[in-house]
Design a protein around this nucleic acid. Structure first.
Lengths: 228, 228
DNA sequence: GCGCGCGCTGAACATCATCTGAACAGCTCT
DNA sequence: AGAGCTGTTCAGATGATGTTCAGCGCGCGC
């Protein structure tokens, strides 16, 4: 974890650095707003501790510049004054947390932990096979860069297949996962859907294994390894 | 946005509810730890305000149970006492922010905004998609540079959608986050609102994904690459 | 090579989700 | 109480979507 401290009071800055150092952060320091802004704009920090009263460029402005430049690291704001209106301004400029001096080192660390913990919780939701990519949250499918419109059931089937890639999936397995309990067992609905899917995403992306079911494959990788 | 208040003092609870109501949240209330835990375990909240001193089950325990059950909504902790050791315990139990009584309503709102904003992966209080920009603080919406007047619920829906941009949002998800506990589940209110929204911000900005729900998109970016 | 069945496909059909306009109800402000 | 705004309900229209069906191609076992 890499942290930036922007604080003009040398004593407090030193104290902050000690605390963060001790907690295992790699710490950079800045003594005024300009320097702080530059560092934050340049280096990839995991957390920033920012004083509001700063020479050369005040804290809220620094924060606004970062945010409008797309920087999204968590920022914890410090101030000596306990004025709620300033806190509100800080929050709306994009701060994630706030601490009033004097504070207890343990509390600063706890807040930083909370911030970095939450910032880490971003996961992707698109699965790819070859140049076919399925965005499971957005319910969208791309072939290359081209958006393909699928109906609800088509998407469910493709989604299930791509979650079990390179495996043969039987018709009944599909039926059981697409529909609830009772569904007419002999019906060729699945075949119709697979047919429509093939038309939309490309014929060679879904292989049919006669007597067993279907398999989703990467057509480009087919030439490479062919066993039987 | 839907919020839960867990607070045993009836006066303070009423005051909190008023503040959040007025800010456009759909608010549920709980008077003790057990009830609060149950609601948080059952309903999908976007933010929780949790008192630490509670009858039946104390706040830290409630929070710990939620977190170990995988609940990841942002939690803001309240306490009358200014004891930092309790704050630290709260943070390490999984709290995202902390406020000491007495507090200024504006500050509570600012902190909640910061929490929900970050939980959705955004850093500033105005969120844009294409030339549509939503100021979550001022509750104002612009198409290009033209101000659009939205009613309270229209704004709530658009606000929730833009916090979860490029994702399909089901009708029930919308209902659960726009309204509090008791609401007639089958009603086409949402459809009516979406229709009115489309009339105000442009037809092609809200796609309907049949059988799944709606998706807020940038109509200009139809051919462009995908997001993660 | 031959026939059997499995799987494919196009079109027709039925259904269901969603949209839309309008009316109604509730609240606030004067 | 009345006017205006907002949220909710309702019913009919509409079109996309799921399902069925019948005919055909073709691989597979014999």
């Amino acid at each position: 974890m890499r942290a930036l401290i922007v604080e003009d009071d040398p004593d407090l800055r030193r104290q902050l650095k000690d605390v963060l150092d001790h907690a295992g952060y790699a710490v950079d320091e800045a003594g005024d707003g300009e320097e702080g802004w530059f560092l934050g704009d340049t280096e990839p920090y995991d957390a920033v501790v920012l004083d509001l009263g700063l020479p050369r460029l005040d804290g809220v402005s620094v924060l606004e510049r970062w945010r409008s430049a797309g920087k999204d690291f968590p920022v914890l704001i410090l101030t000596a004054r306990d004025r709620w209106s300033e806190k509100v301004a800080g929050f709306d400029a994009g701060a994630d947390d706030y601490l009033t001096k004097p504070f207890h080192p343990e509390e600063l660390l706890a807040r930083l932990r909370a911030l970095t913990r939450r910032a880490a919780g971003h996961t992707t939701s698109t699965i790819e096979i070859g140049n076919l990519s399925v965005d499971t949250r957005g319910a969208r499918v791309f072939v290359g860069d081209k958006l393909v419109k699928l109906t609800s059931h088509e998407f469910r089937i493709l989604s299930y297949m791509i979650h079990h890639r390179e495996r043969v999936i039987s018709r009944t397995e599909l039926v059981e996962h697409i529909y609830d309990q009772d569904f007419d067992r002999d019906s060729n609905t699945i075949e119709v859907f697979v047919g429509r899917l093939r038309k939309k995403i490309g014929q060679d992306r879904i292989e049919t294994v006669r007597g067993l079911g279907y398999r989703l494959v990467d057509p480009a990788a087919n030439e490479r390894a062919r066993a039987g």
